[in-house]
C-alpha cells in the first residue's frame, strides 16, 4: 500500500477522492445492474427478474430472521438490499481493479478504509435509534437502556459503542488485510527476486484473490446480518 490516496480539501472538509470515486463507481454499477435486471418486470418472471427476486429474497430472509417487528421489516428490507449490494460490490472492487496514476491510487476498495465502514455502521446505529424511538418514544427508548436491570445501564450504553466499533472495524479489517496481503504478494513478493518470484506469485495471488472474493461476500453478509440484529434488538422490548 505504498500509493497515496488523493485527498482534497473542500469547504474545510477533507475529501478522499479515491474513496469517493470508487464508491460512486460502484453505486453507478449497482444502479445500472438492478435497473437492467428490472427492465422487464412481469407476472411470469424472466431470467433477469428471477436473479433480482433471488437477491431480494435473500436479503429479505436476513431481515426476517433477525427483526421480529413486521412494521420495521417492511422499512428495513430495502435498506438491507441496497446495503448488501453496495458493500458486496465495494469489497470486490479492490480485488480486480486498482488504478494508480503517478503514485496516487485512484480506485480501490472503499471498505478498506475505516472511515467508510464507520459511515455505514453509523447509518445502522442511527437507524436503530430511529426505529427504537418510533416504537417506544424517546422516553421509552432511553428507559430501555436500564432494562432488564438498572445497573446494566452503563454496560448497555457501552454496548452501543462496541457494536458500532466492531461492526465497522470487522469489515474494515477483513478487507484491508485482504488488500495488504494482495499487495504483498502481487507487488513486494513478485518484484523481490526477478522473474522466478513473478512466476511464483501468480498462483498465490490467484488463490488469495479467490479467497478474498469469499471473504468479501461473507463480510457483506455479516455486516447486513449484524446491522439487522442490532436494529432488531432495539425494536423489541427485553
Amino acid at each position: 500500500m505504498g500509493e497515496k490516496p488523493v485527498v482534497v480539501s473542500f469547504l474545510g472538509l477533507n475529501f478522499n477522492l479515491t474513496n469517493c470515486l470508487s464508491g460512486t463507481l460502484m453505486a453507478i454499477v449497482i444502479g445500472w445492474f438492478v435497473i437492467w435486471l428490472a427492465k422487464k418486470v412481469s407476472m411470469k418472471p424472466g431470467k433477469r427478474q428471477n436473479v433480482l427476486e433471488f437477491i431480494i429474497d435473500f436479503t429479505n430472509g436476513i431481515v426476517r430472521d433477525n427483526v421480529s417487528d413486521v412494521d420495521a421489516q417492511k422499512h428495513l428490507s430495502l435498506y438491507a438490499f441496497t446495503l448488501f449490494l453496495f458493500i458486496f460490490m465495494m469489497n470486490q472492487l479492490g480485488l480486480f481493479l486498482e488504478l494508480t496514476i503517478n503514485g496516487h491510487i485512484w480506485i480501490k476498495s472503499p471498505t478498506a478504509s475505516p472511515l467508510i465502514t464507520m459511515t455505514f455502521a453509523m447509518m445502522t446505529l442511527l437507524l436503530s435509534f430511529n426505529f427504537a424511538m418510533q416504537r417506544f418514544g424517546v422516553g421509552g427508548y432511553l428507559r430501555n437502556y436500564s432494562r432488564p436491570i438498572g445497573f446494566l445501564l452503563p454496560i448497555n450504553v457501552l454496548e452501543e459503542f462496541t457494536n458500532f466499533l466492531t461492526l465497522s472495524l470487522r469489515l474494515y479489517g477483513n478487507i484491508y488485510a485482504g488488500e495488504v496481503l494482495l499487495t504483498l504478494i502481487g507487488h513486494d513478493f513478485a518484484h523481490s527476486a526477478g522473474f522466478a518470484t513473478v512466476l511464483a506469485s501468480a498462483p498465490l495471488a490467484f488463490i488469495w484473490q479467490g479467497f478474498s472474493v469469499f471473504i468479501g461476500s461473507i463480510q457483506a453478509y455479516v455486516f447486513v446480518t449484524l446491522s439487522m440484529v442490532y436494529i432488531g434488538r432495539k425494536v423489541q422490548q427485553e
Binding site: 472538509l13 477533507n14 430495502l78 438490499f81 441496497t82 446495503l83 449490494l85 478504509s113 459511515t119 453509523m122
Partner: peptide, 24 residues
C-alpha cells in the same frame, strides 16, 4: 476525511432512491 462520510451518505441515499424507484 469527514467529507467522505457526507459524500457516502449522499451517494447511498441516491442509490437507495434509484434502487427503490427503478428496481425494488
Amino acid at each position: 476525511e469527514i467529507g467522505d462520510l457526507l459524500y457516502y451518505l449522499i451517494v447511498f441515499a441516491i442509490l437507495l432512491w434509484v434502487v427503490k424507484h427503478y428496481a425494488w
